[in-house]
């Protein structure tokens, strides 16, 4: 080692480098600590703490409700009024790539062990509509021997542990205290990670707003005491909506009086849309 004293210049540079080193080390420690602290706080708890106590809607206390949805597949007739109502009510782009809700048709033909599945979005069904926005299921199995068939309405499951919320890099999508998963359009950066993360295909990228979009259970309606548009228009009460906190609600009655299941339970997402009378082919 040289025993000459460091020059003033060298001291300056050394000092500068030491400062840089210290600053980056401090920054790393601080950000690490902050990351650990934030990781230890559940996302839901954090969001709840950040929100106004009773929610942003005047006259509506979101801590008093716990919404849930039911689909009675024994009632659904596949009329698709729900799909149309949803598009109109929520300004969903009228193209066949964006839906907040849709209906699937499961048909088991004689001699086949797997169902044939289609939705109103199938080109054959789109072609069957007189105008594209008039959704309908084409009578494509005419002449076939159908052994079993049923319709299944699909929508956002407003999960207990939503993977879409987990992956959002900016927290633009969040779960409200009343159990609804919402998207802040003014905050979403449009990375589409949430669209990928949803195992139910409930999200789409809205080309008009350049943000992610999905079903909100018509939050603007339910906070005013109304039902979601799809529930409202269903002519056969195939869609049930209500408050789990209210023992007398329709959804509680539906869950109590039917054997229900949720979709893709293995994901651990904890969906809040309950289905009755569907077989394991529905996912």
């Amino acid at each position: 080692m040289s025993d000459t004293k460091p020059t003033k210049q060298e001291m300056g540079r050394r000092g500068f480098m030491r400062l840089l080193g210290e600053l980056s080390a401090t920054a790393a420690v601080c950000s690490g600590a902050a990351a650990v602290a934030l990781q230890n706080t559940p996302a839901a708890a954090r969001t709840e703490a950040e929100f106004p106590a009773k929610g942003p809607v005047p006259g509506y206390d979101w801590t008093k409700h716990r919404w849930a949805f039911g689909v009675d597949t024994t009632r659904c007739i596949g009329c698709l009024r729900c799909v149309e109502a949803c598009k109109v009510e929520n300004n969903v782009p009228f193209n066949p790539n964006d839906y907040r809700t849709w209906v699937e048709r499961y048909v088991y033909l004689e001699g086949e062990d797997k169902p044939r599945v289609d939705s109103q979005d199938d080109p054959v069904n789109i072609a069957a509509a007189d105008i594209p926005t008039n959704y309908r299921f084409a009578n494509r199995y005419k002449g076939d021997k159908v052994e079993k068939s049923f319709f299944v309405a699909k929508l956002c499951n407003h999960c207990e542990n939503p993977p879409c919320v987990q992956v959002c890099p900016v927290g633009a999508t969040y779960k409200t205290p009343d159990g609804v998963v919402l998207i802040d359009k003014n905050y979403c950066i449009g990375c589409r990670y949430c669209v990928q993360a949803c195992p139910y295909g409930a999200r789409y990228f809205n080309e008009e707003t350049n943000t992610a979009d999905k079903c909100t259970w018509c939050y603007h309606r339910i906070t005013k005491g109304l039902k979601p548009a799809c529930v409202e228009v269903c002519p056969v009460q195939g869609r049930i909506f209500g408050d789990l906190n209210d023992p007398g609600s329709e959804i509680n009655e539906f869950i109590r009086t039917h054997r229900v299941r949720v979709l893709k339970p293995w994901t651990g997402n904890g969906p809040h849309v309950f289905y009755n009378e569907i077989d394991s082919e529905v996912s």
Binding site: V170, C188, G190
Partner: peptide, 17 residues
């Protein structure tokens, strides 16, 4: 979709993402 908001992922990062 909104590149002008990209830095929000740094300033207001959602740590589970």
């Amino acid at each position: 979709g909104h590149p002008e908001r990209a830095l929000e992922a740094i300033w207001t990062a959602h740590w589970t993402s």
